[in-house]
Design a protein around this nucleic acid. Structure first.
Lengths: 336, 336
DNA sequence: CCCACGAATCGAAACGCTTCGACAACAGGA
DNA sequence: TCCTGTTGTCGAAGCGTTTCGATTCGTGGG
């Protein structure tokens, strides 16, 4: 592999000139810069990553810790991982993928060996060993998600509280007074994953605030569980006319199928809305109104924040992305 | 961060002694080794990754190029990515995740900057720009998958040809003579993804060899498409008594649902087998006989092979993992 | 005409590690 | 006793960058 030495020789300048010509950190004569660039081109030169890490104090690598629990919905997870990688690449950063097999140890390893400039944390749960570690490690880090205790942390997430309220706002505007919520599988709440809990709590609170009747059920990914969840809601809310689903795609598809089987039309007999879904509800039968959860909306800011921390200090804070509402005609006035 | 210097000082030895004590590349007195280890422990020392890359000639990082096409089935993809990461970690390697957004450019970048020791390639397609690049780059690389032209490449994959034959072998043993195959979405074949094509071709060839009547249909992920695929098969094979599914989970679930709706019982009226599935067919209704596609079966050997290439030369070759068959009672003798 | 200043360039130190060659100390064989 | 190995340790030479003075050469102001 050609080194900066070779480039310098070919361009007839010193090593430091090459370095400055490439980094632009000092002024270089236009003619020289051109000669250097030509030399780089003909030699196919690329700075040695290790040397750069050692001499500079940047590695241009972010660690991405993305535990994949068995209950995690893979397509959503994948979408977030990809989004982080794309965001990082826009700033010339690469991404080192850390899974949870080593526990938080992997994080400690890559940070203490100066392999990465910062950390992006996905799938945050309320009690997360990675978080305590990050607090002690003193390294640029952004969480995509909001744990219970955000002391000293930089977090970005969708505003699930606002999303929950927004979903009820739309249903209330259409005239609904009694609305059920189908959530994620039990295991996800048990694990302490933060966003389903936040959505649920905000939903119930917003319902109370608006004087609406609301109820909540969790649903696993199998038919009987979804059926039980729907039954649970109609038991709790005999006059239920609205249904919010904050769950993964398969559960929502299943639920729509069950409604159809039972002869309940959407939105004729029941208004349905898909909240904070990372997938498209356009091809559903029928397409659902949705408050989309777009990975880029949180991952790009997350990476940008990590980058700013690399540059200088960024005070700990929580950034919440406001929800958007997309109408697809699955909400109508309730039958009198 | 503590450096090797600090460790040496604390342990009262020279830098090189510390290095040798830790690497074990030269003999070191037991007492010294212990003192060094204690110093390492108290200082929380870890070798600086950049320095190690520069001085040694290993980075202990593999690049994982895993394009995610929109048609790709995310859970399977995720499982392979995780498997590669786990395999790499077992050899003290980290994984840098490359997506396809930069095209093959990302690969060139990390390789020419000596950021990685080798490359693992997932989701290989027949004409793949990454492959040509790898051939010119001369770097340890293992493909998980078998492209049409394997010249100069190291590849590992499930033996899809054997799997196709094995599926027909079991159906033939049960007495079936007319068997249909439901494959992946059209887009996957169009893209040149290699394994669905290999399975299909081998299936049709094995059927001919065995003197069976066979037919093939692709199915997209929506109900109508799956229905059309099933209809296509029964049109082509009026006496079809066996069905092999080589497709993702949702298509298989949908297909089973359609059979149920049509009053076709499994295995009473139709024997069904799920071939090369990366998911469990245990919870299906009914559970299906399967030839599992276990990511670890290919990813672990793939990483091991990449590692051996880092150590020395490994001749180009293709390793095929033999298929296993798991019975779950979804195959029975055809009704006379 | 001299001086100060900016632009362009260079040399060398530093980054933290690995590894090679030396060397001292000590053992065992002749 | 001398020589030959072996074992344990050290010093120093890189590895390929970045970056900090220092230096040279014009140029414009006084």
């Amino acid at each position: 592999m050609a080194s900066i030495h070779d480039v310098a020789k070919l361009a007839g300048v010193s090593i430091s000139t090459v370095s400055y010509a490439l980094s632009g950190k000092r002024s270089i004569a236009e003619a020289t810069r051109i000669r250097v660039n030509e030399a780089v081109e003909t030699l196919g030169y690329r700075a040695h990553a290790g040397a750069r890490m050692l001499a500079g104090d940047r590695t241009n690598i972010f660690a991405l810790t993305a535990p994949l629990h068995s209950e995690t919905y893979a397509p959503a997870h994948m979408a977030f991982v990809l989004s982080v990688v794309r965001a990082a690449r826009e700033h010339d950063y690469d991404v080192l993928l850390l899974t949870q097999d080593e526990g938080a140890g992997g994080l400690r390893r890559v940070v203490t060996s100066s392999l990465v400039d910062g950390v992006i944390v996905l799938d945050v749960s309320d009690e997360d060993e990675r978080i305590d570690l990050l607090r002690t490690l003193d390294i640029p880090a952004t969480l995509v998600g909001v744990p219970r205790d955000t002391e000293g942390l930089v977090c970005v997430d969708m505003n699930f509280e606002a999303a929950a309220d927004l979903s009820l706002e739309h249903l209330a505007a259409a005239g609904h007074r009694s609305v059920g919520l189908i959530g994620h599988p039990h295991a996800i709440y048990d694990r302490g994953s933060n966003f389903p809990r936040r959505f649920r709590d905000a939903f119930l609170a917003a319902g109370a605030d608006r004087g609406m009747d609301v109820a909540f059920e969790m649903a696993d990914r199998d038919g009987p569980s979804v059926r039980a969840a729907l039954d649970g809601l109609t038991d709790a809310l005999p006059g239920m006319t609205g249904l919010v689903m904050h769950s993964d795609e398969s559960v929502q598809t299943t639920a729509l199928g069950i409604l159809r089987d039972r002869g309940i039309s959407v939105p004729g007999d029941m208004s349905v809305l898909s909240a904070c879904s990372s997938f498209s509800t356009e091809h559903f039968e029928p397409p659902l109104d949705t408050i989309p959860l777009v990975p880029d909306d949180t991952c790009f800011p997350a990476v940008a924040l990590a980058l700013r921390q690399v540059g200088g200090k960024v005070p700990p804070h929580v950034e919440l992305v406001p929800p958007r509402y997309i109408e697809r005609g699955s909400i109508a006035a309730p039958v009198a």
